[in-house]
Write a protein that binds this DNA or RNA. Structure first.
Lengths: 105, 105
DNA sequence: CGGGTACATTCCCTTGCGGCTATATAACCG
DNA sequence: CGGTTATATAGCCGCAAGGGAATGTACCCG
């Protein structure tokens, strides 16, 4: 699963993630918060689903959307290559933690 | 300066950042590596410049492009809000480090 | 089974972006 | 100064993506 940069490039989709960070939400709730049409919201949710950033739990006619952080973890891993450029004095610690990730025990 | 998600959404631009991670480069060099036209490369470089992700050092007719990691650091800060979702056992350590960032001494 | 609710899908329109070609700009060299 | 090198800008085209209205689908309730 590639890092979904293009999916995150959309402000409404990032706002959805921010809202789901607090708690799972229904589509209607998200629609209201976003100020979009319901179909518009559903479309974004589909993109987020296909990128693995959210998952759905069905409850009768309702759909609870919740966060799936895995793709964000991959983004984090990508960022790690650059992190030494600004992390400064924490470098050594971070290299140690990165090594642990590769070979945890 | 907002986080340049849309700028990073473009594969060629991410490749430019990857190339600049090794060392500063000339436009011609980047053009060759990307397999784009020279104007195409310049256009991407302009976008990266305006997003603060690269800076230019002029040397006669040549322009050395180099990385400016600040916007990536902001992206890292955004990601931090989500990091506890996958970091698991390292939570406590990270919260400690985050606190240090806010109030280093 | 009929109507209502909650959401997804389809269709259409418009805009923005990435790509290229052609051209401008600027600096070096002989 | 004239030509060449290195890069930027302008102009144009095609496509994909976001937005809304209309419609489809699935489930509940009486």
């Amino acid at each position: 699963m590639p890092i979904p940069f293009d999916v995150l490039a959309e402000p409404s989709r990032r706002k959805i993630l921010d809202l789901l960070l607090e708690r799972p939400r229904l589509v209607g709730e998200l629609t209201e918060q976003l100020g979009l049409s319901q179909p518009g919201t559903s479309k974004h949710l589909r993109v987020l689903r296909e990128a693995g950033l959210v998952r759905v739990r069905q409850d009768a006619q309702r759909r609870w959307y919740e966060l799936r952080p895995e793709p964000l973890a991959e983004l984090d891993a990508w960022l790690a290559h650059y992190r030494h450029l600004w992390a400064g004095s924490l470098d050594a610690l971070e290299r140690h933690l990165d090594a642990m990730e590769d070979d945890p025990r």
